[in-house]
């Protein structure tokens, strides 16, 4: 038995002394509320650092029992191969159930139309596939790794965020969330989006990954990659899904990815941070926000709010 309480749960008379412990306990509390209040929850897993962190938190919340809900990946088909390989290994190691639904199927069924041109991305198309999967499995709660510090519309998001039959977010009429009390009462057909790490910042996530020694896909660390520059952003030239004009020159540079989304809308950053402590140090000093490398947010001032209204995460 541990004799003294060193970190979590903390030793002081007040709140858990360290921010990361307080955030961890808050997230665990939220995950347990999901398991208790809903019949068919699912954890939306993208293979990115935030959803990987969620998996660790869920392990902690229910130990020594297994995580009582499956993971689901809405696969755009444009994922970094490193992410997919990582996802499959994680699921196997932890003995988790993984559901995969493909955006390609939604395209083949004619439900959505592939975008074309320079900025074509499957990011928007994910929403249809996600909503269909929610209906198919009758999920009543979808746990996601979105954080309020990412983007200003997300800063308005509740922890339990109700979506109607059409998956839509009614941002002007959100349920008040008071103290720790989470109201998960919904009607048939509605579902709740749950954000256990709402109050974490990007740096908190990285610090937690470091502290917990959580494995993450290799593309988060600095590596040599063939890239090209466009609009001041760095794009991977190694994958054909990223549109590249003939006059956009390819060069090999040392880069890493700060967010891992659909390849067609996720840009890299120049970096030599090849270990977790270097990544943490880099984030601490960074002058650019995390979503600064996401072209999907640059479409307009209200890009995220619009996507969320339609059912996007």
């Amino acid at each position: 038995m541990e004799t003294t309480i060193i970190d979590t749960p903390t030793k002081t008379e007040g709140l858990p002394k360290l921010k990361i412990n307080a955030l961890e306990s808050e997230a665990i509390y939220i995950l347990r509320e999901v398991a208790a209040q809903f019949e068919k929850p699912v954890l939306l897993f993208s293979g990115g650092k935030d959803s990987i962190t969620l998996v660790r938190l869920a392990q902690k919340a229910f130990y020594p029992a297994k995580i009582p809900f499956p993971l689901m990946h809405i696969d755009t088909g444009h994922n970094f191969p490193e992410t997919i390989e990582f996802r499959d290994r994680l699921v196997k190691e932890l003995g988790l159930e993984l559901i995969i639904r493909n955006v390609q199927d939604s395209i083949d069924e004619g439900k959505v139309v592939e975008e074309s041109g320079k900025y074509a991305s499957r990011n928007m198309l994910q929403t249809t596939t996600l909503l269909d999967a929610i209906e198919e499995f009758k999920f009543d709660a979808c746990i996601g790794g979105a954080r309020r510090d990412e983007e200003k519309a997300r800063a308005k998001e509740r922890i339990f965020s109700v979506r109607d039959d059409f998956g839509q977010w009614d941002e002007k009429n959100q349920r008040p969330e008071l103290f720790d009390m989470l109201n998960g009462e919904i009607e048939m057909g509605q579902n709740v989006r749950v954000f256990p790490i709402s109050n974490w910042t990007e740096l908190d996530v990285w610090s937690y990954i470091e502290k917990e020694d959580i494995e993450i896909p290799s593309i988060y660390f600095a590596h040599k990659r063939n890239v090209f520059l466009r609009d001041g952003m760095i794009w991977s030239a190694e994958d054909e899904v990223v549109f590249r004009a003939d006059d956009e020159l390819v060069e090999e540079r040392t880069v890493r990815f700060r967010t891992v989304g659909d390849m067609s809308c996720t840009a890299a950053v120049f970096s030599h941070a090849d270990t977790i402590d270097k990544v943490v140090a880099e984030i601490r000093e960074s002058k650019i926000s995390e979503r600064g490398a996401r072209i999907d947010d640059k479409r307009s001032e209200a890009a995220m709010e619009k996507r969320k209204q339609q059912g996007y995460f």
Partner: peptide
């Protein structure tokens, strides 16, 4: 008192334990 796979002697305020 469990927190994940470790046992503790004490659980403080606002810690999520088992």
């Amino acid at each position: 008192i469990y927190f994940y796979d470790k046992k503790y002697k004490k659980a403080t305020r606002r810690s999520s334990v088992t």
